[in-house]
């Protein structure tokens, strides 16, 4: 019971970096662009945010800086992959390597330093409930991420913007022929993805574990990419997937605290192993992927 309480209260915070990055990637992929650079964009955002908070700039400025840096780095990807028609897979990898390099370069003198995270806000009443009470005591970014999830779900479900994004991803030729600026819409979607990945990195480095270590993103950007597939490009499922990963990353700690003897390396590998297994299960269901997949994902388009 204690383990369950522990997981429930920490799950949303652990899920937030996955969720923010995956939501950003979702918007880009819905528009037909596969950006494999998420890990590097998150790493850059994390470094920028940490440096800003460390020097007393505060969390608002830190998130703004990280989001801006993430968007700019992703625009560089967009320039190569959409403007110049470069290979999308390779350009994404290049951005990822560049982002991780810049992150290590900027963060070098901050190794092992810590900053102060954010205070948790409790929802009165609900937070006093037994067992599930912890779910309702979260920092402001978690609450905002939930709002962002809802906003993106609404956008895709009900708005013209959502429809436009999907049209551009499903059939860019048709969208172009009825006069929509396909490339411009895709560039905007990629920039939004970069913004969200920057936020995700900022949250990881200045709120969730407010301590700088090179390589602290530790594959979370790649898991976010996998989450978009797990969620079969649907916002609600991506949210559930992110929560699952939040829980998985805490379950190990809970097991250890409960006296279960597991090598720490197995615990560290758990999110990766779960990703591989779930990816296998979801991908083998062709119907599911065909139903919701993006028809022209990763395909170049030249007007």
């Amino acid at each position: 019971m204690i383990a369950l309480e522990f997981i429930l209260s920490g799950m949303l915070a652990a899920a937030t970096p996955f969720l923010l990055a995956a939501l950003g990637e979702l918007v880009g992929e819905r528009a037909g662009v596969l950006n494999l650079g998420v890990e590097g964009v998150m790493a850059l955002g994390a470094a920028i945010a940490f440096i800003i908070v460390y020097h007393g700039g505060g969390h608002i400025l830190a998130f703004a800086g990280a989001g801006l840096a993430g968007a700019l780095l992703s625009l560089l990807f967009a320039f190569a992959a959409l403007g110049l028609q470069a290979n999308q897979v390779a350009a994404g990898l290049a951005i990822g390597i560049l982002g991780q390099g810049l992150s290590a370069l900027f963060g070098k003198t901050y190794e092992s330093l810590t900053v102060k995270g954010l205070q948790k806000l409790a929802i009165p009443g609900l937070s006093d409930l037994p067992v599930v009470g912890g779910l309702f005591v979260q920092d402001i970014v978690v609450w905002l991420s939930l709002a962002a999830t809802l906003a993106i779900w609404t956008t895709f479900a009900f708005t013209k913007t959502g429809l436009l994004l999907r049209a551009v991803g499903e059939n860019p030729k048709a969208a172009h022929s009825i006069g929509y600026p396909v490339i411009a819409i895709r560039v905007a979607a990629v920039a939004f993805g970069g913004l969200m990945s920057g936020f995700a990195g900022a949250y990881a480095a200045t709120v969730y574990t407010p301590l700088w270590a090179d390589g602290m993103i530790a594959g979370r950007g790649w898991i976010a990419l996998a989450l978009v597939v797990f969620g079969t490009w649907l916002t609600a499922r991506i949210f559930l997937g992110a929560c699952l990963f939040g829980a998985v990353s805490l379950a190990g700690l809970a097991a250890q605290a409960g006296g279960v003897e597991l090598p720490s390396q197995l615990l560290a590998s758990m999110p990766y192993l779960v990703t591989i297994i779930v990816l296998g299960i979801i991908s083998s269901n062709r119907r599911l992927l065909k139903l919701n997949g993006v028809a022209s994902l990763g395909e170049p388009f030249k007007p």
């Binding site: 560089l76 390779a90 560049l98 390099g101 370069l105």
Partner: peptide, 10 residues
């Protein structure tokens, strides 16, 4: 070096 590699590929 990593920054150099990323910018080289790009």
């Amino acid at each position: 070096v990593r920054v150099f590699l990323g910018s080289l590929l790009l």
